[in-house]
């Protein structure tokens, strides 16, 4: 047998922390806030037909333990709740934005175990043991993350709606280390749409952090 590379999340965490994430959590005894959440998502009024379907099929509750911005939480959620909705609606972390809700815009980008992902296409229940960092978790107290500073300095936004996703995505991009040229930065930031067209300044902000 030749070489083998293991890309399992636990392996990457091992190299990062010197201990597995699962081991780390069990050391903590999965302490942290426990939230019991309303079992049903609120349905839009007037959606009566769907409402009946739901009455017929009761919601299923999933319990999940995950770390959000350094704080380990146990959430009891309707299994349908996405990571995005859990962050925004249940935990009040409204920095992460909902644009399309279908993986097509990048507004919901967060970091999961250090990697940028779309929180709208992730079930909260699939994040057992994950370490999530949102835009709220990037700054250290009053000290902004270098990427936040760079976005400010280079005017990397206009209305700001896409910005939390852009910043989290940019942090992920720098860590991945595959974007060297402007063209590569643009290509590897293409998962974040900016309706205001702040793209040039976003590229400038990312280059500043890369060169720091």
């Amino acid at each position: 047998m030749g070489d083998m590379t293991d890309y399992s999340p636990d392996e990457s965490n091992k190299s990062k922390l010197g201990t597995t994430r699962r081991g780390f959590l069990s050391q903590l005894g999965v302490a942290g806030a426990s939230l019991t959440l309303a079992p049903l998502l609120v349905r839009a009024a007037g959606d009566s037909q769907k409402g009946e379907d739901i009455a017929a099929a009761p919601a299923e509750i999933t319990s999940v333990s995950l770390t959000i911005n350094g704080k380990t939480q146990v959430l009891n959620l309707d299994s349908r709740v996405t990571l995005l909705d859990a962050l925004r609606e249940k935990l009040g972390l409204t920095g992460t934005k909902k644009g399309c809700d279908h993986g097509q815009c990048g507004a919901c980008t967060v970091l999961a175990d250090g990697r940028r992902i779309n929180s709208c296409l992730t079930l909260a229940g699939m994040c057992e043991g994950a370490e999530i960092v949102t835009i709220e978790g990037l700054a250290k107290g009053e000290q902004l993350h270098p990427m936040q500073e760079a976005f400010l300095k280079h005017d990397g936004f206009q209305c700001g709606y896409c910005t939390p996703g852009q910043i989290c995505s940019a942090v992920g991009l720098v860590k991945e280390g595959h974007a060297k040229t402007d063209a590569e930065i643009k290509e590897l930031m293409s998962g974040n749409i900016c309706r205001c067209g702040a793209y040039q300044n976003i590229v400038a902000a990312i280059k500043e952090v890369q060169n720091a």
Binding site: G103, G106, T109, R115, R116, I117, N118, L121, T122, S169, G172, L173, E176, L188, M189, S190, G191, N192
Partner: peptide, 8 residues
């Protein structure tokens, strides 16, 4: 897709 989607 996109870098985020490819990470998933």
């Amino acid at each position: 897709a996109s870098p985020q989607l490819r990470n998933m």
